[in-house]
Nucleic acid binder design. Structure first.
Lengths: 199, 199
DNA sequence: TCGTTGGGTGCACTGACTGCAGTTAATACG
DNA sequence: CGTATTAACTGCAGTCAGTGCACCCAACGA
């Protein structure tokens, strides 16, 4: 990597790091962009070269994650049930590897502005999932609405699982996979006994 | 109703009306609060007495709707499957009565800031739905996460259906009810034949 | 070595939103 | 009635997020 690229990546990383730290220690509303930039040793103007909004600094690697997710999901023409595949990719892709990520989801439960930003980032995933399902099902108007509805639902389950992880520490992958599987995977041939626990 | 109350309600209504009109004709970003207030014949300061944010003016009756929804949903201790009841109340409660509402959902598909506001308002519904399910299921940590996950999913289906209505004009109640029913209602004893169309 | 490029800066600006100290007219009350 | 109170609304000064623009300087390529 270039010295320039290195510089850029490092500045961005530092900004995101201090942003998340300040958000979680001092509160989101109480933290100004000026403070974040100051802590990272750059000018406030520079902050906006790296993040389009103050909230975006809490989700620094979003684009990369969407790219990874898109790759793992594929084009909807694999053999097998596309909904089952979607459940797999979504639930197993939940990243619970670092305390930083958990901090992020703890913040998400508290700060409305971050939930709004999260909703915006979720929309990118929604488009990917919807495109995947439309590719698998065909692109009638009804299939499109159906695809978006299921994408919304599936991402809602992921979000709630991750926030639950942030607050209660329960592994979100299990609960997410189970609920997704029952809801959209292929619960239709599951033994009836397993159904009761949903209620 | 008081003359004062009347005045207040009327000002609020007028502000919301002009806000939605300006948003949809001139664009959300291009419309300033000063313009909305001017069109409604009040000062900009007054706008913020009625709406906490510019975006909130696009959802003027949100609190009332949440109240209605909460009432219709009940406390989760009715006889019968609570998930089925949830599907009923959600899908049949979708309000498609006026062109104004459709304009709102058309805007929602285009304007990120409004989607963010919508996500915030959706959170109120999420709390109501989650509380309802927790009441029906008990309040273990796992049930709580499950309740929030299903609430997120169900509201995601409603949102996508309504946006689909805005864009394609398809009655959202039918598609919403059908998808909700299959996903969370009680699809488990449905004939297998009906399942295939999901895929 | 020199032109170019890209990360960062400074400054002036817009626009959302807030706190506070009014004004005015509807209402409650003696 | 007349008077005190209240509530809708206003004006103003301020904070802060975010943008456009001209600029600097160090790294890079030829």
């Amino acid at each position: 990597m270039n010295q320039r690229e290195l510089q850029r990546v490092e500045t961005r990383r530092t900004l995101a790091e201090h942003a998340l730290r300040l958000f979680s220690t001092n509160g989101y509303e109480e933290t100004t962009v000026e403070e974040i930039a100051g802590a990272a040793g750059v000018s406030p103007r520079t902050f906006f070269l790296h993040f389009s909004t103050k909230a975006a600094a809490a989700f620094p690697d979003h684009e990369e994650r969407v790219r990874n997710f898109t790759e793992r999901l594929g084009d909807g023409h694999q053999p097998g049930n596309p909904l089952l595949h979607l459940c797999d990719v979504l639930a197993h892709g939940l990243d619970i590897s670092s305390p930083t990520r958990r901090t992020r989801y703890q913040l998400l439960a508290e700060v409305a502005a971050l939930r709004a930003e999260d909703a915006r980032t979720d929309r990118d995933y929604e488009e990917v999932v919807a495109a995947y399902l439309i590719h698998a099902w065909g692109n009638s108007i009804e299939a499109t609405i159906r695809a978006h509805a299921i994408a919304n639902a599936a991402l809602g389950v992921c979000r709630a699982s991750l926030i639950g992880w942030g607050q209660a520490g329960i592994d979100p992958r299990e609960v997410c996979f189970e609920i997704l599987h029952r809801m959209i995977g292929s619960p239709f041939d599951a033994p009836l006994g397993s159904v009761q626990s949903l209620q």
